[in-house]
């Protein structure tokens, strides 16, 4: 069964190659894109490929946002099943995501570049066999974000726009930093997951990654800065020991307002010795832009800063 499925994929891959060879723009023997992809399947150096990609499949929502932000939106042929920003992306075909990329559909779309997440080696290998370039990406800190933006600018032929957009985001971040400069930095707990109505299954930001860096820029001292992990699952005991003065709770999809907010705030009352609980400094932030390391991080960082230092924005 597996062998048959594999055979089928290879067949489709061959058909895709045949089709692209037939296009008039390819007259020479041996397509440089194909050679390059075969020689170096997981990462390709933008400099070696002069022709900008025009049919891009993006399997990473953060990268989709970047493409649209640098004006490469018209070059995007399909997106992942989790993409819903910008609104234009919603209208594009969906080809699966991290765990379930639909290789058949991706190949049928005849992309010249597929943006994959770093752990999708099997998909990258398959695409390489089909002669399709891949751009492998992993979430990291803000540096990784700007690097990805620069690389995307290079492969889409929009180096200037990418640089301009990156600059704009840097300015936004710098503006937030300037706003909170010189103010005391409260100890902040940044929560991005929790079981409803109770303090169980808490997921908070550790001392690595873009959320931690954004919190730092927003003038907060992460109470778990010493733990070198992106996410930490603290126990009630650890929460009581770390004593956050401000609690930021990110709710990506569910709006926390009204009765919900009252109920969720009440869950924290169990640990009343925590300064943030005592002083009522628990903030619920809603929106997926808060956790996508894309062009909207300037806004997200400002949202953090407004919650931590409301007086700085009066």
């Amino acid at each position: 069964m597996a062998a048959r499925a594999k055979g089928l994929i290879v067949l489709v891959a061959l058909m895709a190659c045949g089709a692209s060879d037939a296009t008039p723009s390819r007259t020479r023997d041996g397509d440089p894109g194909v050679t390059l992809a075969r020689a170096n399947p997981t990462w390709f150096a933008p400099r070696a490929q002069p022709r900008p990609a025009t049919r891009i499949v993006s399997l990473v929502p953060a990268l989709t946002e970047m493409l649209f932000a640098i004006g490469a939106g018209p070059q995007v042929a399909a997106v992942s099943s989790y993409d819903d920003f910008p609104p234009e992306a919603k209208a594009l075909p969906r080809v699966g995501a991290l765990l379930d990329p639909d290789v058949e559909r991706i190949l049928a779309l005849r992309p010249d570049l597929v943006l994959t997440y770093g752990s999708q080696d099997a998909l990258e290998a398959q695409l390489a066999r089909a002669g399709i370039r891949t751009f492998s990406y992993r979430h990291g800190g803000l540096d990784a974000l700007f690097q990805a933006m620069r690389d995307l600018g290079a492969v889409t032929g929009r180096t200037t726009e990418a640089a301009r957009k990156a600059n704009e985001i840097r300015q936004q971040l710098e503006a937030v930093r300037a706003r909170v400069r010189g103010r005391p930095r409260p100890r902040v707990l940044l929560v991005f997951g929790r079981e409803p109505q109770t303090l169980r299954q808490l997921y908070v930001s550790g001392g690595v990654g873009f959320l931690h860096e954004m919190l730092d820029l927003a003038g907060g001292a992460n109470v778990f800065a010493d733990i070198r992990r992106e996410s930490v699952q603290p126990s009630s005991e650890t929460l009581l020991t770390r004593m956050p003065e401000v609690i930021l709770e990110i709710h990506e999809t569910r709006m926390i307002a009204g009765a919900d907010a009252v109920r969720e705030r009440a869950a924290w009352r169990a640990l009343s010795a925590i300064p943030a609980v005592r002083d009522g400094r628990i903030h619920f932030l809603n929106g997926d832009y808060l956790t996508v390391p894309g062009p909207r991080i300037g806004l997200a960082t400002e949202a953090f800063a407004r919650a931590i230092h409301p007086e700085a924005f009066r």
């Binding site: 126990s235 009630s236 005991e237 009581l240 020991t241 169990a270 009343s272 010795a273 005592r278």
Partner: peptide, 14 residues
């Protein structure tokens, strides 16, 4: 009790 961290760790966490 509301301000006693040690008591809260003992009675609420452990």
């Amino acid at each position: 009790f509301a301000d006693n961290v040690d008591a809260q760790i003992f009675f609420l966490a452990r």
